[in-house]
């Protein structure tokens, strides 16, 4: 039988082997890499659910749900647009921003937008806390504690999916200095040069390349 591990602190959770449970929407999702995890470690009680105003930046606790962020006056409109990509209100009540980043899905709702808003993550690692750019984060790279995002970034979001409830083929976001793409079947890319495309049931490689180039062009980049 699989096990639920309850811990007394995030530091204790770091020392355990298993999948982290936050909002819980990824742990049983079809095709989720977490689906076969033998042990699940409940970390939600220890994650911050606060949003703090830090001038031109906001610090978002990793335990904030999509719905709580959508109702917060501190969240900039470009991030609310990305949060609303998760179209089901039921899912938005459960899913956390930290969990969405940590799952590092190739149809990520938030990573392109956050990366284009110069997001930095405060991550708990065995050696202590570190602050890293979102582009440096890797799945299984510690426990995300908070996300700091520019409020003033001029972010343009793009997303293509068959329906509002479907997995996205391409999600992309652009600001004056950053661009980020989540390409279904290929991965997440933090620059244009590293983009790669693979054909799958969501679309051909050519289709995904076309969408990525179209979005880049519409964002004002050549």
């Amino acid at each position: 039988m699989r096990e639920l591990i309850r811990v007394n602190s995030l530091e204790e959770a770091l020392g355990k082997k298993g999948a982290y449970l936050a909002g819980g929407t990824e742990i049983l999702r079809l095709d989720s890499p977490l689906d076969k995890a033998i042990s699940v470690i409940d970390i939600l009680p220890f994650l911050s659910k606060e949003v703090e105003d830090e001038g031109d930046w906001i610090r978002i606790g990793a335990g904030c749900t999509f719905s709580s962020l959508l109702s917060s006056a501190l969240i900039p409109s470009f991030l609310k647009e990305a949060l609303s990509y998760m179209s089901s209100p039921e899912l938005r009540e459960m899913a956390t921003i930290g969990g969405n980043i940590a799952s590092f899905r190739d149809d990520s709702f938030l990573i392109p937008t956050l990366a284009s808003a110069y997001a930095r993550l405060e991550v708990l690692l065995p050696g202590g806390k570190e602050c890293i750019p979102l582009s440096s984060f890797k799945r299984d790279g510690g426990i995300i504690l908070s996300i700091t995002v520019s409020k003033t970034a001029d972010v343009k979001n793009f997303r293509e999916s068959l329906t509002s409830h479907s997995h996205a083929v391409v999600t992309a976001a652009f600001s004056s200095e950053c661009e980020c793409y989540a390409v279904k079947g290929s991965g997440i890319f933090f620059d244009h040069d590293s983009l790669s495309f693979a054909s799958d049931m969501y679309g051909s490689a050519e289709y995904k390349r076309y969408l990525s180039e179209l979005y880049r062009s519409e964002s004002g980049r050549s």
Binding site: L4, L21, G24, T25, I27, L28, R29, V40, D42, L44, S67, S88, P89, E90, L91, E93, M94
Partner: peptide, 20 residues
Amino acid sequence: SVIKDGKLVTSCIIPMGAVY
């Protein structure tokens, strides 16, 4: 859909561990 702690959620993806 079920109501969990006053919020509407989908029970098909909620692990029992999250119901504690």
